[in-house]
């Protein structure tokens, strides 16, 4: 059984619940677990895209998800903020807990969930609006009050884009280069201050320089946010992540461990074969 990997990480540094501990008590989670999957399965029609996944994702770390094409890594990512709801034939069973609350419970509104779990997509997708309005949009719809200008500036600074755009905040977001557009999308995602940021191959459409900028940014972001990033680039996963999930063909979570352990000392032959490039 290779999915027992997560068990190792869970309880070691558990300095018990914090004083408030209002959400943690339900399960045997540590205070640091922000997302936990319990037998999470995803189906597209009759086809199973994800075999039961059990995993705990830790707060303020970068968790990378790697695996060959069609292995279900994006499916898993999108099940976290229920973006899979958009697909009519998609069905989810099992649990995915966000801070103790199963996001697939009847009373969960995906809109509310997505306000706490931001997302950055594979292709930069700025809205056909000004740079300022792109960043302010999440703040606006979520009704965040405060100094809007300052919040926009803060988000753009965090996304390492402020210096490049501060003179042209009224220009269309579409006028920026691909790398800038992606950092704009990151600024847009972090502006409303979510707790988790999901990234679906955020650098795969970018050139090497822009990719390096995004990678630096991700490390920076993990100080304040829990980042879960899908990537098909194993070097990237090795460079930027603290922990790595390896999905293999058929939607199976084959390994989940500290990134160093995954790359230097893979526990199963199949994972090793994938990581050393024997397939995939």
């Amino acid at each position: 059984m290779s999915d027992t990997g997560p068990a190792i990480e869970t309880s070691i540094e558990a300095e018990t619940d914090t004083a408030r501990g209002d959400s943690g008590g339900v399960d045997q989670q540590t205070a640091e677990t922000v997302l936990s999957a319990r037998d999470l399965e995803v189906f597209y029609g009759d086809e199973r895209a994800l075999k039961p996944v059990n995993a705990e994702i830790t707060e303020k770390k970068v968790t990378a998800i790697i695996g060959p094409s069609g292995c279900g890594k994006s499916t898993f990512l999108r099940s976290i903020n229920r973006m899979n709801d958009m697909i009519d034939v998609c069905r989810v069973t099992g649990e995915l807990r966000f801070k103790g609350k199963n996001v697939y419970d009847e009373d969960v509104d995906p809109v509310a969930l997505r306000r706490k779990v931001g997302m950055v997509f594979q292709k930069p997708n700025p809205f056909p609006k000004s740079i300022y309005d792109n960043v302010a949009y999440g703040l606006k719809i979520q009704g965040k009050d405060g100094d809007r200008d300052a919040q926009v500036e803060e988000a753009l600074r965090r996304a390492a884009l402020w210096d490049e755009v501060k003179a042209k905040l009224d220009a269309s977001g579409l006028d920026l280069s691909g790398g800038q557009q992606q950092r704009l999308c990151i600024a847009r995602a972090i502006a409303p201050d979510p707790e988790v940021i999901l990234m679906d191959e955020p650098a795969s459409a970018l050139d090497p320089v822009a990719t390096a900028q995004i990678e630096d940014l991700i490390e920076e972001l993990s100080r304040d946010y829990t980042v879960v990033i899908v990537t098909h680039n194993m070097q990237q996963a090795a460079r930027i992540s603290d922990r790595t999930m390896v999905f293999l063909t058929g939607g199976e979570l084959a390994a989940f461990d500290d990134t160093q352990a995954i790359f230097e000392n893979p526990k199963s032959q199949r994972v090793e074969d994938y990581i050393t490039g024997k397939f995939g």
Partner: peptide, 25 residues
């Protein structure tokens, strides 16, 4: 669809996606 997803990902409702993102686009 990427534009719609961008807005849904921010926690926009269907109505907000329609009027704020799709209509202007």
């Amino acid at each position: 669809d990427e534009l719609r997803e961008g807005a849904y990902g921010l926690g926009a409702t269907r109505y907000e996606v329609s009027t704020d993102v799709v209509l202007p686009a």
